[in-house]
């Protein structure tokens, strides 16, 4: 009996809380806030916050056309594959000190790093399967962008692993739960002197990884007619837009967990102060943690994505690559060296 209960519980975890529904709502909400902020920065009123929801449901209502040259199975499966990978990715990121052991035990930082590849690969496969020349060009630009963001991401994760690992036997530690616990005791990693350049580097990587404005040469609607999504219409396109939203959520929550993990410690004391006990306290503190996480994500989006979107113009793919492999990787390498030699 408890086996079924257990299975249901885990299914609920996958589908409801940190899984599909949570990602769907907060992902698109984050996207809406981002668009609103960008508009406000250009002195425009900007679309309503729920605009991405309207876009998504409208796209679901529209007719889906599969071009004759396309490979139908890949054309329809690609967005779903990307969505599945992103939802699973979101499961691995703990919410401050509350996490589901069954999930966070299964994967560590390197697996997360690799899981970020799957949505990119899914959009590439989707674009390639349509066979349109715009998709061909968009696909190669998307690959170069992923390539560009890979180096700084690796550097940052290695330096974080080194700092956190110092207190564990292996000398390195890649599991997210341990990183958060470390921050609970030693204060958020942002306060760690050596890791500040790494934090900045990670912040600069977020727009690149999610394909937001200055680095969206892959889906440039003006030059290559929405790149890989040129032939998509209707529900698959809606799912791709949803993927974009959830990816923003994942990247920002990864940033918050890696560098602002320590803020969670206050929640326990707060709930205890209010005098709740037992499961109610747990429920409330989980709720508080999620709200705090979402708030921090919004702040990070505001700074990392919207501000950058409002003030910069789209870069050429070659400039994107050069920017990431010189400026951002330099920062991350600096922090790795600092951390390595005992700062």
């Amino acid at each position: 009996m408890d086996m079924i209960l257990n299975a249901l519980k885990y299914l609920a975890y996958v589908l409801i809380f940190p899984g599909f529904l949570f990602c769907f709502l907060s992902g698109l909400l984050l996207c809406g806030i981002d668009r609103k902020l960008v508009a406000r920065m250009q002195k425009r009123v900007g679309p309503p916050i729920l605009q991405p929801f309207y876009d998504f449901f409208k796209l679901c209502g529209k007719e889906t056309i599969v071009p004759a040259a396309a490979n139908k199975f890949m054309f329809l499966m690609a967005p779903l594959l990307g969505l599945a990978a992103l939802v699973v990715l979101q499961l691995f990121i703990p919410v401050f000190q509350f996490n589901i052991p069954a999930f966070t035990e299964v994967a560590d930082v390197i697996v997360i790093l690799y899981l970020l590849l799957i949505p990119a690969v899914s959009i590439i496969l989707g674009g390639a399967s349509t066979g349109s020349p715009y998709a061909g060009v968009g696909l190669s630009r998307e690959m170069v962008t992923v390539l560009a963001c890979e180096l700084p991401l690796v550097l940052v994760l290695l330096s974080v692993g080194k700092v956190v690992g110092a207190s564990y036997q292996g000398g390195i530690c890649f599991s997210m739960t341990k990183i958060v616990e470390y921050q609970m005791s030693h204060g958020s990693l942002i306060t760690h002197a050596g890791l500040i350049p790494a934090a900045i580097a990670f912040l600069l990587v977020i727009p690149g990884e999610t394909g937001n404005h200055p680095f969206d040469a892959a889906e440039a609607e003006t030059e290559i007619c929405e790149g890989m999504l040129a032939e998509y219409s209707g529900a698959p396109l809606g799912v791709f837009k949803l993927n974009h939203g959830i990816k923003m959520l994942t990247m920002t929550s990864l940033f918050v967990m890696l560098f602002f993990g320590g803020l969670g410690s206050g929640i326990e004391s707060l709930v205890a102060l209010v005098g709740l006990t037992g499961t109610a306290a747990h429920m409330v503190s989980v709720l508080l943690a999620v709200l705090l996480l979402f708030l921090l994500c919004v702040i990070v989006t505001a700074v990392g994505i919207s501000l950058v979107h409002a003030v910069t113009a789209r870069l050429k793919i070659e400039q994107i690559f050069k920017y990431y492999w010189t400026v951002v990787s330099g920062l991350a390498l600096l922090s790795l060296v600092l951390v390595w030699y005992g700062l």
Binding site: F20, L83, A84, V87, V111, G171, F174
Partner: peptide, 30 residues
């Protein structure tokens, strides 16, 4: 040192993918 248990991980991915596909087919996605 790292933590990676592929079988559980894959079950997780399969569950997620399956549920999404079921939802999609239910809403006449294809």
């Amino acid at each position: 040192v790292g933590v990676w248990n592929p079988t559980n991980w894959l079950i997780l991915l399969m569950i997620a993918l399956l549920s999404i596909c079921i939802v999609a087919i239910a809403s006449k996605y294809d």
